[in-house]
Design a protein around this nucleic acid. Structure first.
Length: 711
DNA sequence: CTATGAGCG
């Protein structure tokens, strides 16, 4: 569902004039508040205000389902703020930063309050990574799920909050699944002195499983010797599922359903399955363009960058040959890796007599709202991450989307007016789709989630209250991984290293590499932080989609390239960028490097160096990276990868992985592409057209003994 | 020898 509140485009100056004189005492904020009240009262959720307030007086948990346009994300926190039990703050979690920020802005306006830290009188703020815009008086705090998880690691009882509103639960991010489990355990633990109210909000009608989740007591841990964070389970023993739970327990949870507000969208299917969706999309786009009236832009959902570029070429070719009496066509690709300026083009108005066609990945399904769309073309496919226990790695596969995803895509045609949706598959195929997308926690490497649980005191992770429990094999794999990393002891309990790694904003592997770099024998903390910072943000190198662009980039970045490999090349890039004091943006442009990514790198670098102060108060500062340091840097990575992510050159001139003896090629984006060295360490193993190693550096085999010999 | 989705800390 869409969180972004509708942008208010009405002209407030004009309004002020035409409304006649206001009393002098009315501040601009108060005037705005008064004006917004009317549109608030027209939201579908407004009529349910009484019910919602009443149900949380009676119960501690409310499961609320409401579709796009119901107003739940902005109104529910305001309804609850004046309730007698609400003496503390209200947290409202969002899966994405932009949503947290824009919702906070909107609600501040509606309440006539200044935003965040701008004034002590502010009642509304937000908190996202690198941007905490709250003050002591903040009552409603919009924040990302990840930020609330971090807060729960510091203050296990969430003592400053009276209420947590968990929004967009249907998206089922790993973080939201962890949050729901932690919140359930907190309610059952009896650790709260004052009551904590929980509102769980979802765009789908799937209220049943959420309310069952909260009304079913968490079964007691299998290993009774392990104290868990939930303390009061004895009294719940014997109730393991819904049928056995008593009415009294059920009544903890109340439910509410609110209608959405959407224009109708006419649905079309194809009659028989197609082999070639790109061609089918091409035909449909041209047909729509020639037959349907203007205005009305077309949004096409596709799987990835490559086929988007392919279709773009085809459409532009056909559009160029159209007779002059037809409107023009403007084709715009849209995917996350596209530079910000190119993404912005979808928001610009098209030239006169021109129809926009946006060829997009899943980014337009939830994260970006494309304006002006009346027609949606849906290929019915998406790239979906999957974790393979056997190989211990994640891969992306092109797979059919779920029904709820297809319906979400369809809804994108009805945001501004009635629209149409063309599914490039049969109605029968639609009926055969899964109802919902598999929650991510069932499809990913669990080591990060498991380490967070361990850091919160959940010793027996198998009895953790998951909304959908991952299979045992995946859990065991992550425990083994964490054990090998040295973050857990043999008995599975978290150790000192583990607690430190859990607090770093990194995957356990990258966190472990940073800790390794802080050891006196390695002494390369600042250098490794620079590299790790690059690995934890989007690609710092701007994408190169043509042969020409590739050659240009190669030349522009030539001074940054290090023949030892990608790790030292990243380090050189960060150091050169940081050393540039006059005009960093220009520096980035001339080197074909993303300025935004580099700003993020510097932010991450600052955060990591601050957090590492306690590990190593005075790390060595170097102006040049000598050979010993280079070796130490790569040895930190070898340590973190504990035998994985290494390949050596074989007599047949291919690289084979050290652990599995599998052929792997160096990725074309690597500075080592095409080079033959004794052995390599790499950050990622990806399988696309074939098996590739990405983020690659040359190593010497004799280093391995040194790394594995010293613990 | 030539190029995975989007999102979070």
């Amino acid at each position: 569902m869409e969180n972004k509140p509708p942008t208010d485009v009405s002209n407030s100056k004009k309004r002020k004039r035409s409304d006649g004189p206001k009393p002098q005492s009315q501040s601009p904020l108060a005037i705005k508040k008064q004006k917004l009240l009317v549109s608030r009262q027209n939201l579908p959720i407004w009529s349910r205000q009484k019910d919602i307030r009443e149900s949380l007086r009676q119960h501690s948990i409310l499961v609320l389902s409401g579709e796009t346009g119901s107003g739940k994300s902005t109104q529910v926190p305001q309804f609850l703020l004046t309730e007698p039990w609400c003496t503390g703050k209200i947290a409202v979690t969002q899966p994405r930063r932009v949503a947290a920020i824009s919702l906070a802005r909107r609600v501040a306006e509606e309440m006539g309050s200044p935003l965040g830290a701008s004034s002590p009188a502010s009642k509304v703020g937000y908190s996202v990574r690198f941007d905490d815009n709250t003050s002591a008086g903040t009552r409603i705090k919009y924040l990302t799920e990840g930020m609330l998880l971090q807060e729960m690691l510091r203050d296990g009882a969430l003592s400053q909050y009276s209420c947590v509103v968990v929004d967009e639960v249907h998206e089922r991010s790993v973080d939201v699944d962890l949050l729901l489990g932690f919140l359930k355990q907190l309610l059952e633990s009896g650790k709260r002195k004052k009551p904590l109210k929980i509102v769980v909000m979802s765009a789908t009608a799937d209220v049943e499983s959420l309310s069952r989740f909260f009304s079913t007591p968490t079964p007691k841990s299998e290993e009774t010797s392990n104290g868990t964070v939930h303390g009061d389970d004895e009294e719940f023993q014997g109730f393991s599922d819904d049928e056995q739970s008593t009415p009294a327990e059920k009544s903890q949870v109340s439910t509410c359903r609110v209608e959405g507000r959407q224009y109708p969208v006419k649905l079309h299917y194809i009659d028989k399955p197609t082999e070639d969706v790109v061609d089918a999309a091409l035909q449909r786009i041209m047909h729509l363009h020639c037959k349907e009236p203007m205005p009305g832009d077309i949004l096409v959902f596709m799987t990835g960058q490559e086929i988007i570029h392919g279709l773009q070429k085809l459409v532009e070719e056909l559009a160029g040959n159209l007779p002059p009496e037809y409107p023009r066509l403007l084709v715009l690709p849209l995917f996350a890796a596209l530079p910000q300026a190119a993404q912005q083009r979808i928001f610009e108005r098209a030239p006169p007599n021109t129809r926009k066609v946006i060829l997009s990945t899943n980014i337009a399904e939830t994260s970006v709202t494309v304006p002006g769309v009346r027609y949606v073309v849906d290929t019915g496919k998406a790239k979906i991450k999957q974790y393979r226990n056997r190989l211990g790695l994640e891969s992306l596969l092109v797979k059919p989307i779920s029904k709820s995803s297809a319906d979400q895509r369809k809804g994108r045609a009805g945001r501004e007016a009635a629209g149409q949706c063309f599914r490039l598959y049969t109605q029968q195929s639609y009926e055969e789709l899964e109802k919902d997308t598999k929650p991510e926690i069932l499809r990913c490497d669990l080591s990060n989630a498991v380490l967070k649980m361990k850091a919160r005191g959940v010793d027996d992770v198998f009895s953790f209250p998951f909304l959908t429990p991952p299979n045992r094999e995946a859990m065991e794999k992550s425990l083994l991984q964490l054990l090998l990393l040295g973050t857990l002891n043999e008995d599975g309990k978290i150790n000192d290293i583990g607690r430190k790694v859990a607090r770093l904003p990194l995957t356990p592997t990258l966190g472990r590499i940073v800790l390794e770099a802080a050891r006196p024998e390695r002494d390369c903390l600042l250098e490794v932080i620079d590299i790790i910072a690059c690995l934890s943000v989007e690609n710092i190198f701007l994408p190169t989609d043509t042969e020409e662009a590739r050659e240009k980039a190669l030349e522009a970045r030539s001074q940054l390239h290090r023949r030892q490999g990608d790790h030292l090349t990243l380090l050189a890039a960060v150091q050169a960028y940081a050393a540039e004091t006059s005009d960093r943006k220009r520096w980035a442009t001339t080197h074909l490097i993303s300025h935004r990514a580099m700003q993020n790198v510097l932010n991450v670098r600052k955060q990591l160096t601050t957090q590492c102060k306690s590990l190593l108060p005075n790390p060595t500062v170097r102006s040049t990276v000598d050979e010993d340091t280079q070796e130490n840097i790569l040895k930190c990575f070898l340590k973190g990868y504990h035998g994985n992510n290494i390949a050596r050159l074989c007599p047949d001139k291919t690289y084979k992985t050290f652990a599995g003896n599998q052929t792997v090629a160096i990725h074309p984006s690597s500075v080592l592409f095409g080079r033959k060295v004794e052995a390599v360490v790499y950050n990622e193993f990806v399988f696309t057209t074939k098996a590739y190693a990405r983020g690659v550096s040359a190593i010497q085999l004799k280093w391995l003994e040194d790394v594995w010999g010293s613990s």
